[in-house]
Amino acid sequence: MTLRLTLVAAVTCIFLIQGSAYGHHSFAAEFTAEETATIEGVVTEIWFRNPHVRYFIDVADGEGDIARWDTRGSSPTLLVRKGWTKKTISVGDKVTIHGHLGRNDKHLLSIITVELADGTKIGQGY
């Protein structure tokens, strides 16, 4: 696994997203609209409960160090409507996650899309 972290203009990278998924939380308080990143890693823990789903991801930097990323998605109630259930992603899965960076913690990501090991790409509007 390698770390692939790219800061880009958010407007060029948003796809599959359904903004209304964020309708009720303090997203803007924690995340930036301007900066996004893409990480590749292994799922180590899943929290698939309201108010927001969380996936913890171990990301290796290629030099032997591993960083634990806290990635957050929409409410599971909204995700399951689209077919994204608690069984969609399992502990141990390799994933590539693209999302908005946290404001104060660079190991914090708000999920825009997740690419599964088989190449399937899912997003908040999935």
């Binding site: 998924a21 964020y22 309708g23 009720h24 939380h25 303090s26 309201n50 108010p51 109630t77 909204l78």
Partner: peptide
């Protein structure tokens, strides 16, 4: 609501996702 407490009808009536 981040700690699962109701934000009340004034906030909820306008939430657009559900």
């Amino acid at each position: 609501n981040v700690r699962c407490v109701s934000p009340g009808i004034v906030a909820m009536v306008a939430w657009g996702a559900y």
